[in-house]
Amino acid sequence: MSNETFFLYDHKEDTKTRFVSFMGESNRYDLAITITNNFYGKKMVVNLQTNRAAIIGQDDLKEEGYIEHAFAVSEEEAEELLEFLYTII
């Protein structure tokens, strides 16, 4: 790293991460859900199979097409994810 690196922020925080694996009708999901103070009450959800991540709150779950776009999944797969995410977010 050069001496001229300009950080927007650089801090450490203790977080809590839950690892969940479950089977839907058409797919297996391996997720890491991280709780942090960094995202204004939202959780960081990472699909460990595809390395796609999203910062998700209740408002995002209600936004049409958000899960499909964030995780690059079909509408059917998004419904399976939403069913689970509603229980934890």
Rank of each mutant, 00 (worst) to 15 (best):
F7R: 08
A78I: 04
T5I: 15
K12T: 06
E63H: 04
A78V: 03
E80W: 05
T15Q: 09
N38C: 05
D30Y: 03
F19D: 09
M23S: 14
A54S: 08
F7E: 10
K62T: 06
R18E: 15
E4V: 09
N37P: 02
Y40S: 14
L61C: 13
K16G: 00
K16R: 07
F84C: 07
L81E: 05
L82P: 04
D30K: 07
L8M: 06
H69S: 12
Y66M: 14
E68G: 09
G57V: 00
M23T: 10
D60L: 03
R28C: 03
I89C: 12
L31W: 03
M1V: 11
E63Q: 13
L31D: 01
Q49I: 06
A32V: 04
H11T: 05
V46W: 01
F22S: 11
G41E: 01
H69P: 00
F22Y: 15
L85S: 05
D10P: 00
E80D: 11
L48G: 02
E4A: 14
K43Q: 11
Y86D: 08
A54G: 14
R28D: 03
V20S: 07
F84A: 05
Y40E: 13
R52H: 03
E68V: 06
E4W: 08
F39W: 13
T36I: 07
N38K: 11
V46L: 15
E79S: 13
K16Y: 11
H69F: 06
N37G: 15
F39V: 02
Y40G: 06
I35Y: 12
V73C: 14
I33W: 07
L85V: 08
E68S: 10
L85E: 02
F84H: 13
G24N: 07
E79M: 06
F84L: 07
V46D: 10
Y86V: 12
F71M: 04
N38H: 11
H11D: 01
N27C: 06
K12L: 02
I56T: 01
L8F: 08
L61D: 10
M1E: 12
I67P: 11
N3V: 10
H11N: 04
H11K: 05
E68N: 12
E13R: 01
K12C: 01
